[in-house]
Amino acid sequence: MRDNSPVVLDRLFARRLVFLSGKGGVGKSVVGAALALCAQKRGMRVVLVEVEAPLPVARLLGGRPGASPIHPEEVLPGILTVNLEPAAVMEEYIKRTLHIQMFVRRIVQSPIYQRFYSAAPGLPELMLLGKIMDLTDDRHDHDLVIVDSPATGHGLSFLKVPFAASAAIPIGPVGNAARRVISHLQDHEHTALAVVAIPEEMAVVEGLEFLEQAQREVGIAAEAVILNQCHEAVFDESEEARVLELLAGEAGGRLARGVSLRGALVAARRQMRRRKLTRFYETRLKRATPLPLLRLPRIFAEELGLDDLRGLAARLEAHP
């Protein structure tokens, strides 16, 4: 197991496209924002892509509500963000394919189109991937695209859509678009995948499943596992022993600022157990995959701010 994150970041940033994948709720978008800040620090221009995010992390970077659903906007020097809306992406695609602008609106507003579009299997995903590939091809505007993959929960189904589409649609632009997406996904110099997990059973199990599927079924280059929300060591061994002893002895009283000792001890025990779990899952990931493991700390804040994101970026840069 290599454990040198500047090298890992170099490897990720040498690509045009980095997909972040992981179970819902593991903080992929926060990790994406931290990675974007790392890229920015290296003087790169980077696009952070979210998909239909109800609370896009872009807004922590300065993104405004009501931004374009298809065109990235620069929110910090060198950082562009976009929260893609599949319907808007589809419309843009039709406009480009159809050439005749005046018909586009009629098509898009026709009930047939509405019905077909809302139920057509995989079409929105395919269009999104096509759009993402277009973004990576725009070398004049930026160096890197980071994608917070939508948490569909169906494993890597987002990345598997072009394979089904390619098999089902043997000819025509949509089939060809699917094949173009596949060739980009499988080009290890173009695209890399990083799996994000948190130290919990389900997230780790699914993260490992993603890795396996990514390699076996998609053929994408997996580069790293990022373990987010790690509880760090606060207490040393003797302090831990003392905490447990005081808890068992029903110790009471008040610490400074009126903090109840009992409450603090209970909080400490929770922290210690979570810390232990963090270590457990770190070990498990290290055993299960030869990929480098990057750790990010759990942040205790009601809402993250830009400073928190910068802190996380610094952690990615200066990994022990």
Partner: peptide, 8 residues
């Protein structure tokens, strides 16, 4: 037809 092709 243009997008999906005849076969599909």
């Amino acid at each position: 037809d243009r997008l999906l092709g005849l076969q599909f």
